[in-house]
């Protein structure tokens, strides 16, 4: 449904996207992960045609971006609907932009996203959660095949976030392809397919499970211990420790060399009697590990 081949994007002073290639199938929820400034928003904007690619090929549903406009929708990171217009006026405006005349569908969408009660409220007066819902409705008026969502749940409360994700699954079930950027691990876990972007390069792609497995030659150990800056800085100096991550009362260590497990255990004994145990790698570990590895 979305195909990107060798995409490059340069701004006047520097390149921000290098050699991006993607292949996303119909009905997939695709998550684009990456730290701040990795180029996630630039990539999504380039895919939507807001920014022009410097080189490379993008096709959506087999069409060029310009021709594919009626078949995709975009929800920006920042609220981009008209604050001075009411909810219904905004919806109607976007419907007209897409030449949609099916008022029933618009009313259905408004109901589906719980905006019925705010029909004549000015969009600028809505809370953040409802603004997001309105943005979603405006991007869905033309029943697009592809939906681009730039950090759709940033700053959204957990309940609304759950509602939105339930809805994303419904949309995917309807056969829509969703392209979501995020840096919430819990959200990344929900995606069918993930790609990890750092410094404008795609590092890994695959299913969440696949990505976890793709980190080869590393093992994760954890120990129950309270945060101790001394211990952490001690481990950070260890050869073969790729990542030290305190997670509540757990200290997680990503090791690239098995041999050092013993010396680590000895170090830990100085602080606690708890045992160092092997643990499964989480997406967050992968995220931080990759970000560190490829930090330039």
């Amino acid at each position: 449904m979305i195909r990107v081949i060798d995409l490059f994007k340069e701004f006047t002073d520097k390149a921000v996207l290098h050699n991006i290639s993607l292949e996303i199938d119909k009905g997939v929820i695709f998550g684009l992960l990456g730290p701040n400034g990795a180029g996630k928003t630039t990539l999504i904007k380039t895919l939507c045609g807001i920014l022009k690619a410097s080189s490379g090929d993008i096709s959506i549903d087999g069409e060029s971006i310009e021709n594919a406009k009626p078949s995709f929708g975009y929800v920006a990171q920042h609220f981009g609907q008209y604050e001075e217009l009411s909810v219904w006026e905004n919806i109607l405006f976007y419907a007209k932009m897409y030449s949609v005349k099916d008022i029933k569908r618009l009313k259905y969408l408004m109901e589906r996203y719980g905006l019925e009660a705010y029909k004549s409220t000015l969009a600028g007066k809505l809370s953040g959660g409802y603004q997001r819902r309105l943005a979603l409705v405006c991007a869905l008026v033309h029943n697009p095949k592809v939906l681009f969502l730039d950090e759709p749940t940033a700053g959204i409360d957990p309940i609304t976030r759950k509602l939105l994700w339930d809805d994303f699954y419904t949309l995917a079930l309807e056969g829509k392809t969703l392209f979501v950027t995020t840096h919430y691990m819990e959200e990344a876990q929900r995606c069918n397919q993930l790609a990890f972007l750092a410094s404008g390069k795609l590092l890994v792609q695959g299913t969440p499970e696949g990505i976890k497995e793709s980190i080869e030659g590393v093992e994760l150990y954890s120990v129950k211990i309270d945060y101790n800056p001394e211990l952490i800085s001690a481990f950070a100096k260890f050869q073969g420790v790729a990542l030290v991550n305190q997670f509540g009362d757990q200290l997680r260590l990503l090791l690239t060399q098995k041999l050092i497990v013993d010396s680590i255990e000895q170090e830990i004994k100085k602080y606690t009697d708890e045992r160092l145990l092997k643990a499964t790698i989480s997406l967050e570990d992968v995220f931080i590990y990759l970000t560190q590895e490829f930090a330039e």
């Binding site: 406009k69 009626p70 995709f72 929708g73 975009y74 609220f79 981009g80 008209y82 932009m97 405006c138």
Partner: peptide, 13 residues
């Protein structure tokens, strides 16, 4: 400034 241009550019207008 209000980010509405971006949303518009995505539409077929």
């Amino acid at each position: 400034e209000k980010n509405t241009l971006e949303q518009l550019m995505v539409t077929p207008i």
